[in-house]
Amino acid sequence: MATIQPVIITSDLDRLRTFYERLFGAMEVSRFPEDGPTFFVNLKLGDSELGLVNEAATDLSAPQRILLSVKVDDVNGLLDQAESAGGRVLGPSNDMPWGERVAHIHDPDGNKVNLTQPLR
């Protein structure tokens, strides 16, 4: 059995960790090292995990090739909170023909994040 864990490399680990905690209720489950400057933080979001790696030389202008998609209970409610958490809303949500409401945001580093919600 295989498991995939997305890991985001960032030049500002604390800012990115705070964004995912505030917007999605992520909980820190581990960090390395436990003492001293942090290199890696593992966050729990529902049934998933997201890793954050602190790398001061990260080029935030490099093209992104992976889209983080997060299934949530209320897309529109999170859109209202995204900017105050440090993100940027790219437009309103849309109901898609495959049965999901979808909205696009950027996290504080400019990473693309899809918010998805099953339509009832």
Results as ranks from 00 to 15, higher is better:
24 F>R: 01
63 P>C: 11
63 P>V: 13
60 L>W: 06
57 A>E: 11
112 K>A: 12
68 L>T: 11
9 I>F: 12
115 L>K: 03
49 E>R: 12
66 I>Y: 15
61 S>E: 15
14 D>W: 10
50 L>W: 03
25 G>H: 03
96 M>E: 13
84 S>T: 11
24 F>I: 04
119 L>T: 02
32 F>S: 07
101 R>S: 08
60 L>R: 15
98 W>I: 09
47 D>A: 08
92 P>V: 15
97 P>L: 10
23 L>V: 03
82 A>F: 09
10 T>V: 03
9 I>H: 13
116 T>S: 13
13 L>T: 00
51 G>A: 05
38 T>W: 08
4 I>Q: 12
56 A>G: 05
82 A>E: 01
38 T>H: 04
3 T>F: 09
90 L>R: 15
62 A>L: 15
119 L>P: 05
59 D>N: 14
92 P>H: 14
56 A>V: 04
94 N>H: 07
36 G>P: 00
14 D>S: 13
109 D>W: 09
17 R>E: 15
36 G>F: 06
26 A>C: 14
8 I>G: 06
20 Y>F: 04
35 D>L: 09
9 I>W: 11
35 D>W: 07
52 L>H: 04
44 K>W: 01
3 T>L: 14
74 D>M: 05
64 Q>C: 15
36 G>T: 11
101 R>V: 06
